[in-house]
Structures are given as structure tokens and as C-alpha cells.
Design a protein around this nucleic acid. Structure first.
Lengths: 228, 228
DNA sequence: AAGTGACATGTAACATGGCAGTTTGACACC
DNA sequence: GGTGTCAAACTGCCATGTTACATGTCACTT
């Protein structure tokens, strides 16, 4: 016996569709959306689309300009820096808590996702590597066993996920170093060395932030097309 | 001549009204709301009310149960613990950053709000003390100069603000110790002693969490009345 | 050619109506 | 007294209509 989970409302699936389209790059960054067009494309009315866009705005994935339109977010250098700093704070704190209060499960989950990433790396599977990476960091957050923290994390991380697929299309990021850093974190966790694990993790996210910065600086194009 | 700032949308003022009513205690915790009644009471249609409630749900102030009704949140012991832990993580990280990159302004703001709290304390002004307290912690968050962090903080802190007014009606909390702890943080910040400031702040929030716990344990009543 | 303003178009905000799921309570029945 | 039934009331979800505002277009003036 378990509480039955309600079937997802139309608004929720609509939000998932649009979120997925943004993260996957189907809807380009900065492109203009329209409630009506999205509703027509998804075969629903404007109401759920409107609700979904409002939810996505709170995730930072879209920006609703009153009476003007809704736009996919555009990566601003400062905003990305702030997001990465925020992410570092949440993840390092979660890692600290997880090692102390949830060591066995945390280590197991990290090792599993680490293995998945190594397999993907050997198979040159960029998408698989990204999935493993998300799984890895998600395990860190879940290890803290704090739903408020997890909710906040998921709400702030979406734009970074979208940026990742937009900037690193075909394994162009330094996956070798990334893999080594993940393994270093796992080793530190295995040794229950909180300080080392936290500093390794902070460095890892810092490197990602640096990669974002260099990529963003080289992309001055601000092309605002219509997508929907 | 100056650029005219757009008047707030109906949804925004509606959300502010309802949020204020919850935080101030006008709408009791756990009470059942209704889009229709709220709309009638506020003199607007159901649309802005609905949007506002959705926004308040993402703040954790209300819980929308599909087809059943919307309820003001109820303080769950574990949820409150998690909120306080989350809050500690955000504030200590912000304080750390603020001392390093924004010391002068941070110290000034903290001293100002500290003085306001002392005045309120001398005048037995409970409301004034609470306002000063909010100002104090807000200054810490703003000191980090990270909008993502600040947004996340404001989104998670609302239930705690509501709890404070619900649990500590008439100066029943230990304001003397609270005041001393605030001053201790200020002194540590003045001395640029990051470690000390952070640990003092963590202790302070921990004490608040403890006060919440004891209060909540003594309130077993789960009276769900209708308010709107 | 450059500037102006009327106008058409597109947008989201807001209002309202219909609908399906949930709760409630009266009431017949055991 | 306890139990099952069912209908009415209530709820939020979704669809659609209406309105105010933003903006692009283009004839017209200078």
C-alpha cells in the first residue's frame, strides 16, 4: 500500500515539454515564444501553457515581459557566475552533510554514476556522459536528505543544464579532466575526508564555470529569432 | 522626467496581499482557501488569484491539492528543520562571501539593523524587533551580491517568517539572547573574523530552530478551519 | 530623404463559462 | 447505532472571450 500519485496535470506535462525543448536546444536561447503558438503546437489551450511558462520563469528558464512576449533566457556572464557560485554553495554543503549522515548510500550512488560516466566516456557517448554527470551531482544533493535544499537546487540548476547542451555540443569540453575530478571526489568521499571532498568538488564546479565563461565570451552573437 | 515604472500586475498585488495575510496570521496555518472566495474578497477575478496561489505554492506558503482545495501550509517538524538547515547554509555562505568582497557596506548595514533592534528592544516593540531581525539577515544575504542566492533565500524564508509570527506572539522568544547573538555576529564581522562570524551565525539560527522545535512539539492541535 | 503619426497586428493580462473529480451529508437500510 | 448509497455542493482545471498595451508598417508631411 502506498499513497497513489495523481496523474500529472496538463500544466505539468506542458511544462516538462517546454523545459525539455529548452534544455535540449530545440528552442534556442533568447528566442521568442508565444502562448498561442505553443498551445497550438502542443494541442492544448493557452491556460496550461500560460501556467507552465509562469513555472518555468521561476526556474529562470524563460523571462516573461508583460504584454510583450515570453523569451527563452539568455546566458548573461554575471548571471552564470552567480548560478555557479550558488551551485557550489549548495553542493558542497550537501556533500558535507551527506558524508556525515549518509555515507554508505552516498558512496554507492556516487560510484554507480561514476561507473556510468566511465562507460559513456569509453563509448564516446556524450549524452550518456552528461546524464551520468547529472546523476552524480544529484546524488550529492540527495545525500543531504534535505528536501528544501533539493528543491532549491533543482530550481536553480535548470539554466545551467540548458547552457551545457548549448555550449558543449560534441564532447568539446574537457571530459578527461572532468572525469578525473569526479573520481577524485569519490575517492575523498570513500576516505571520509570531508575537507578534501568539498574542496575537490568546489574546484570541479569552478572549472565548469570557467569553461562557461570562456565559451560565453567567444559568443557575442545576440540573435533573437522566433522559435514558437 | 523619469522612466515610469510599470504598475504592478494584478497578480502581483494579489500575491502580496495573500502572502501578507498568511505571514501576519490573518489566515491561520492549515486553513482552507478558495480561489472564488479570495477573488470575491479582493475584488478581482479568479485568474490573478489562481496565478498568485501558484506563486505562493512555490514559496512553500500554500499547498494546492488538485480538485480538493488550497491550504495554508502546516508546520511539519521535519520540514522546519530542513528549512532552518537550508537557511543556515545560505546565510553562512553569504556571510563568508560578504565579509570578503563587501566588508564596509555589510558592516554598516548590520550595525544599522542592530541599532534598530536595540531601540525596538528598549521600547518593548516586538514588531519592530522582528523587522530589524529580518533586515539583519537580509543584509547578510545581500552582502554576497549574488542574485541567484538572494532569490532562493527569499523563496525559502517565507514559511519561517510566518512561523515566527505564529509561534512567538508577544515577545515570548528569548529576545535577550537573540540580541546578544546578533551583536556577536556584528563584532566578528567588524574584526573580519570569518570563522567566528560564521559559527556565531550558525549558532544563532540553530537556536531559532530549537525554539521552533520546542514550540511545535507543544502544539499538537491540528485544527483545519476554513478561513477563505 | 527623414521624420511623423495613424493604423494594423501581435502579445499577455484578465474575466468568465463549462467540466470532471472530490467531499459532504442526508437518508435508507441493516 | 452503525453502514452503505447517492446526490448535491464545492473544488480546481481547462477552454475561450475580452481588453489594454507594445510594436511594426506605411502613407503622408516637411
Amino acid at each position: 500500500m502506498q499513497p497513489i500519485d495523481h496523474p500529472k496535470s496538463l500544466m505539468e506535462v506542458t511544462a516538462e515539454q517546454i523545459r525539455c525543448a529548452i534544455v535540449s536546444g530545440e528552442l534556442p536561447l533568447g528566442s521568442k515564444l508565444s502562448e498561442q503558438r505553443l498551445a497550438d503546437a502542443l494541442g492544448v489551450s493557452r491556460s496550461p501553457v500560460r501556467d507552465a511558462l509562469a513555472a518555468l520563469q521561476s526556474e529562470g528558464l524563460v523571462r516573461i515581459s508583460p504584454k510583450r512576449g515570453t523569451f527563452v533566457f539568455t546566458p548573461d556572464l554575471r548571471v552564470v557566475d552567480e548560478l555557479c557560485e550558488h551551485r557550489t554553495i549548495l553542493e558542497t554543503a550537501a556533500l558535507h552533510l551527506g558524508i556525515e549522515r549518509n555515507h554508505a548510500k552516498l558512496l554507492r550512488d556516487l560510484e554507480n554514476s561514476g561507473a556510468a560516466m566511465e562507460r559513456a566516456l569509453a563509448a564516446k557517448d556524450a549524452h550518456g556522459y552528461t546524464m551520468g554527470d547529472h546523476q552524480f551531482h544529484n546524488a550529492i544533493i540527495l545525500g543531504a536528505e534535505n528536501r528544501s535544499l533539493a528543491k532549491s537546487y533543482n530550481l536553480t540548476i535548470s539554466p545551467l543544464k540548458a547552457l551545457r547542451t548549448h555550449l558543449f555540443t560534441i564532447m568539446s569540453e574537457n571530459t578527461d579532466r572532468s572525469m578525473k575530478e569526479h573520481l577524485a571526489v569519490i575517492n575523498a568521499v570513500r576516505a571520509k575526508d570531508v575537507e578534501l571532498a568539498v574542496s575537490q568538488l568546489a574546484d570541479h564546479i569552478g572549472h565548469l564555470a570557467e569553461a562557461f565563461r570562456t565559451k560565453l565570451r567567444s559568443e557575442k552573437s545576440s540573435n533573437v529569432k522566433r522559435a514558437m
